[in-house]
Structures are given as structure tokens and as C-alpha cells.
Amino acid sequence: MKKTSLQTKPYMLNDGEQRFESLGVLVSIMASAEQTGGAFNLFNILLPLGYETPLHIHYAEDVAIHVLEGALDIFWGDEKQRAEVGSFFFQPRGTPHGFRVIGTAHARISYMTVPSGFDEFVIACGKPFNDLEAMMLEARFKIETLGSLPALDKEKK
């Protein structure tokens, strides 16, 4: 992780000012490693209906998710919970987790990682890469992909 000097001046960003596509979603980096002196990253992420992450582990950072719009099924360890607007989820590093957008519309989340450094991964994943490059990125940023999330429940929710 690159060490930077602490942001000494207040700043303000409006959502969308720094929006780009990465990993199949629209991401706005609201607080970068440089702006927070390495303390944390904060992202505003717009997720399409049906989007899902793989089941994966972050070894270098804790993850916090606040659902602003829509609904997610969040998986961690052997558990699954429904997260709707206003829900907050904290994922300590080292535990398998992932999420899937459910319902009838997109979802929007605030996504924080502590400490910072995940912003560099998100930026790197905004560029085309092959399978080998993907594995190298995961190794560099200490992320392990375990596979797909469990299948959708047959019942309607």
C-alpha cells in the first residue's frame, strides 16, 4: 500500500464527478488513499439488477457496506442476510463474503475499506485484463476468489 500524506484541506465531491466503470458496476471514488492519508477509501457504487460478486476474501482491509437504494443478499461465512435500504454490513478482513443485487431494480451502496489501498484495485479493474492479469491483481491486493455465490433461492422474496 502506498503511503501518502494526510489530506490537509477539506474537499467536497458530488456523486458522479469521478464515476467510471469497473468490475461491471459504476463506481465513484469519494475518498481515495491520497485524500485520506491512507486511512480509508470510500466509494459510491451503482449496481445493476442481478449483479453479484464472487465469494471472496479481503486479507488487507475491512469492508463496510451501507445500502442506499435497492436490496442485496449478503453472504459471509456460512450465513446469508437480506440487506435493504438503510442496512449496514461490516465485514472484517479474512472472512469469505459476497453479495447479489435482488428485487426489481438496481442498488446503490456506500462502500468503505479500512485501511485504504482498495481504490488502486478498483481503478486497475476498470481497464481490460486477461485471466492471468486478474490473478496477479488479486495477489497484489491480497484478495482471494473462492467461487460463485450460492444459487438463488427458488422462492420469491
Rank of each mutant, 00 (worst) to 15 (best):
M1K: 08
L6Y: 11
L6A: 12
N14K: 15
N14E: 10
D15F: 11
D15Y: 09
G16D: 06
G16L: 07
R19D: 10
S22W: 03
G24W: 01
I29M: 06
I29H: 07
A33K: 02
A33D: 09
T36H: 04
G37V: 07
A39W: 04
A39Q: 11
F43A: 11
F43T: 03
I45A: 04
L46W: 06
L47G: 04
L47N: 07
L49E: 06
E52P: 03
E52H: 14
T53E: 04
P54F: 01
L55V: 05
Y59P: 04
Y59M: 07
A60Q: 07
A60N: 10
E61V: 08
E61P: 01
E61D: 10
I65E: 01
H66W: 14
V67T: 06
L68M: 15
E69F: 05
E69L: 06
G70R: 01
G77C: 03
G77Q: 02
Q81S: 13
A83T: 08
E84K: 07
V85T: 14
V85P: 04
S87Q: 09
F89H: 11
F89G: 05
F90D: 07
R93N: 01
P96L: 00
P96H: 00
V101P: 00
I102T: 05
T104W: 03
T104Y: 05
A107W: 00
R108A: 13
I109R: 05
Y111C: 00
M112Q: 10
M112G: 06
T113A: 13
T113E: 05
T113K: 05
V114D: 04
V114N: 12
V114Q: 08
S116Y: 05
G117M: 00
G117T: 00
E120H: 08
E120V: 03
F121L: 15
I123R: 15
A124V: 02
P128W: 13
F129V: 12
F129K: 12
E133K: 10
E133Q: 15
A134S: 13
M136N: 15
L137C: 06
E138D: 09
K142N: 07
E144D: 05
T145P: 02
G147D: 01
P150R: 03
P150E: 02
A151M: 10
A151T: 15
L152C: 07
L152W: 02
L152P: 13
K154Q: 15
K154F: 05
K156Y: 07
